[in-house]
Design a protein around this nucleic acid. Structure first.
Length: 748
DNA sequence: CTTCAGGACTCAGAAATGTGCGG
DNA sequence: CCCGCACATTTCTGAGTCCTGAA
């Protein structure tokens, strides 16, 4: 410890040597000078513990690169030697290299149930205190004085979009308002003038917020840069942790700000005020030997400091709406998440080995005399074939009423939905699943696809479901005799660690692999370009997303966009018709040909307006000027759009009388345009409600995609974004013939 | 030993933000 | 070559699943 002390001064000086705090290395080290000493000290300790071969006395000029790129000895040396010639890496880049250099899957494994031996981080970053704006809401038409806390609450409500998913929905708006107002009144106190929501008028605050938005829109490029720099500062202070001597990204290092609770679906608590979390409510998890990070809020301290290496979490606190725990954890590209992810997929791969046995078992048990056994078998079929979630019990006073397999109620099943008669084996399943997403499918249990192969027992499952629903009230559970715990216990008999959710991973990965293979074996495949192959990949991805019922709601913007494409399409068709008429006129020698005027004057008009708005933006210093500038800018842009629209409507015409040949050519061009747009529209319409991302991020084994890319010479960048490549770094080295099957179960 | 609440993690779509392409 | 817009990506935090440990 003594020698550590003596180094500390050294290291401190060193920090000050280099130019700015942009260069200060890690999280813990960039806190203000008082905590710096402690942090530096511990950091060195860790270094020594983690890698005993590092000499105790670190030379001053050696310190900087080692901190940033210490994981990569090959990179360190040349970078050091050539400092003058090479472009200096900025801090973000150095950290990036340091993180990439650590390949956790090649590192020694820790003891069972332990996630780390040393861990240090900078704690949680807290949002700024509330800054009162002084804009008064109206009650009964008169302005009301509010304390900052009261004003803050009013502002949370004013910030809600009146047409958004909470207040715009007539089913949820009353819940939201009731909850909000109850909490608001709690802050106001009993004696307050504000008593009835109907008499409240938040529009002055709403208007103020809109103004603020306008002001923010008017920022110059320099200000934008400065904002980004600020965010980077926070990232560099809080965004990194050191786990067992390796730098790792922290996921959610920003404390959730207070606001109105935005529950999904018909959440009974939406609109309640989510309160500001104080450092005292937050517990830290880090090494015993690590410096406790300085609490970033002046005058406050962390609630608790724990040292639990079994946990992945860095900090935890409780939210006040449902009393549930929230966590600060490492980011998706970290070793913690990577390890869990790989073991998840390996477990799913291992299911390949046991699936036949499981299907044979439920085939037998579907007819078992014992209700419990029969329900377990039927539920397993549903989870296996329909990819439903297990469906835990929910308290509808506290949470939205959503269901999964075990919690399905009689009312969610409609037998013979189309009144087709006795032989009909269709059931319409209609219920709200996770996130209140609608599951609405008519399953024909008599269909071939549900009666073929080892899992095909549709007819029997249909009989069972019918029997389970018999003599029950609408609100009773279909699978009354079982629950998720029993179901999972049942599944564990077949395979170690098997639970209901593994089936979703298994089926998603399996489906992706099979869908991809289908195309690869077709004779024309080899001729396709990489882009065309990617289209097929996305089609396979779509199959998985549909299987898992991953949806997205169509936003207003998308809706109007689709509409406008429709209008454009109609215009194009009309234009083509007109072109044909012009062609006929030309043949007949008719000289009455519609022409278009030059738009030059209007073009310049629009240009001038835009330029003026830009000048206003740059010159604006006061609030009013900024708002004016943004308004002028928007006006000019609208003008431009209008002009573009007008131009588009006349785009098929000429300024001078065209030749017959010109007209012919243009008709061909317009036909192509129409065809392209029709296809585009159909494609957009088909996909507007399917969300591909969720299955890509959570369900499809990335090694299937990587191997496919390698086999087909498709660059991985076309399939996985940067973050996804980082998240799946452990999967990048698989061979082109890698397969998702039971053999991958080893790492589970 | 059993039960069950709550702790700890994965999975989810909306919203915010970034980017690249076509006019 | 530039600029706006459509589309892609990232951030945010709510909503599930599953298991553990306390009573």
């Amino acid at each position: 410890d003594e020698s550590d002390e003596s180094e500390e001064g050294d290291d401190d000086d060193d920090d000050d040597d280099y130019d700015s705090d942009d260069d200060k290395p890690l999280a813990a080290m960039s806190s203000s000078s008082s905590s710096k000493k402690a942090a530096v000290k511990t950091k060195l300790k860790i270094k020594i513990r983690a890698s005993p071969e590092v000499p105790k006395k670190v030379k001053r000029e050696d310190t900087k690169p080692r901190k940033a790129i210490k994981e990569d000895p090959d990179r360190k040396k040349p970078a050091k030697k050539n400092t003058r010639e090479l472009k200096k890496l900025d801090k973000t880049e150095r950290l990036q290299y340091a993180m990439q250099a650590f390949l956790w899957w090649e590192a020694p494994v820790l003891a069972e149930g332990v996630n780390w031996s040393t861990m240090e981080h900078a704690g949680v970053s807290f949002p700024e205190d509330y800054e009162p704006h002084g804009v008064k809401m109206l009650y009964n038409g008169t302005p009301v004085d509010l304390t900052p806390a009261q004003e803050e609450a009013a502002t949370f409500f004013a910030a809600m979009d009146p047409d958004g998913m909470h207040l715009g929905n007539p089913k949820t708006a009353p819940i939201f308002i009731k909850n909000f107002f109850a909490d608001f009144k709690g802050i106001l106190g009993r004696q307050h003038v504000i008593q009835k929501f109907e008499k409240c008028d938040f529009s002055p605050i709403r208007q103020h917020l809109n103004e603020q938005k306008m002001i923010r829109k008017a920022i110059t490029d320099d200000e934008k840069k400065a904002n980004k720099e600020d965010r980077n500062q926070v990232l560099h202070r809080f965004g990194f942790a050191i786990v067992d001597g390796h730098i790792e990204r922290v996921g959610n290092y920003n404390m959730e700000p207070p606001g109105a609770f935005r529950g999904r679906g018909e959440h009974p608590k939406m609109g309640k005020l989510k309160s500001r979390v104080a450092p005292e409510q937050v517990s830290m998890n880090l090494s015993e030997c690590a410096a406790v990070p300085k609490c970033p809020v002046p005058g406050h301290a962390w609630g608790d400091v724990r040292h639990d290496p079994r946990g992945q979490w860095l900090a935890t606190w409780k939210e006040n709406i449902n009393g549930q725990s929230k966590y600060m954890q490492l980011a998706a590209q970290s070793s913690f998440k990577g390890k869990s992810d790989r073991s998840k997929y390996s477990k799913a791969g291992l299911l390949c080995k046991y699936i036949t046995k499981i299907r044979k078992s439920y085939k037998k048990d579907l007819k078992n005399k014992n209700v419990e056994t029969r329900q377990l078998a039927t539920a397993t079929w549903v989870i296996d074939r329909l990819a439903l979630r297990v469906g835990g019990e929910k308290d509808t006073d506290e949470e939205a009423d959503t269901v999964g397999c075990c919690s399905l109620r009689v009312e969610h099943l409609t037998f013979d939905p189309n009144d087709e008669g006795i032989d009909n084996k269709e059931i319409e399943l209609e219920f709200l699943g996770k996130d209140s997403m609608l599951f609405k499918q008519t399953i024909d249990f008599g269909a071939e696809m549900y009666n073929q192969g080892e899992g095909g027992l549709g007819n029997q499952v249909f009989e069972n479901l019918k029997a389970f629903c018999k003599k029950k009230k609408k609100t009773e559970e279909v699978f009354h005799a079982i629950n998720p715990t029993m179901l999972n216990a049942h599944l564990k008999q077949f395979m170690d660690g098997l639970t209901a959710k593994v089936f979703r991973t298994y089926n998603a990965s399996k489906t992706l692999q099979e869908e991809l293979r289908k195309h690869e074996t077709s004779p024309l495949w080899a001729n396709l370009s990489a882009t065309e192959k990617v289209v097929q990949y996305n089609n396979a991805n779509r199959e998985v997303a549909i299987l898992c019922n991953h949806q997205r709601s169509v936003s207003k913007a998308q809706e109007t966009q689709l509409e406008s494409i429709g209008v454009k399409l109609a215009t194009l068709k009309k234009q083509r018709k007109q072109l044909k008429a012009i062609g006929r006129k030309l043949v007949a020698g008719d000289s009455d040909i519609p022409l278009r005027k030059s738009s030059q004057a209007m073009d310049e008009d629009v240009k001038a307006a835009l330029a003026k708005a830009k000048r206003m933006k740059e010159a604006a210093t006061t609030k009013e000027q900024k708002i004016k500038a943004t308004e002028a800018d928007e006006k000019a842009k609208q003008k431009k759009r209008d002009l573009a629209q007008a131009k588009f409507e006349k785009a098929h015409l000429w300024e001078k009388v065209p030749s017959q040949d010109q007209v012919k050519k243009r008709i061909v061009a317009w036909t192509a345009k129409v065809a392209k747009m029709e296809l585009d529209l159909k494609h957009k319409d088909d996909n507007k409600e399917v969300s591909l991302g969720t299955s890509k991020i959570n369900y499809m084994d990335p090694r299937i995609s990587v191997a496919w890319c390698k086999r087909n010479e498709v660059p991985i960048e076309k399939i996985f974004s940067k973050t996804l490549r980082d998240k799946f770094n452990w999967a990048m080295a698989v061979s082109p013939d890698w397969e998702f099957n039971e053999s991958i179960g080893n790492e589970a």
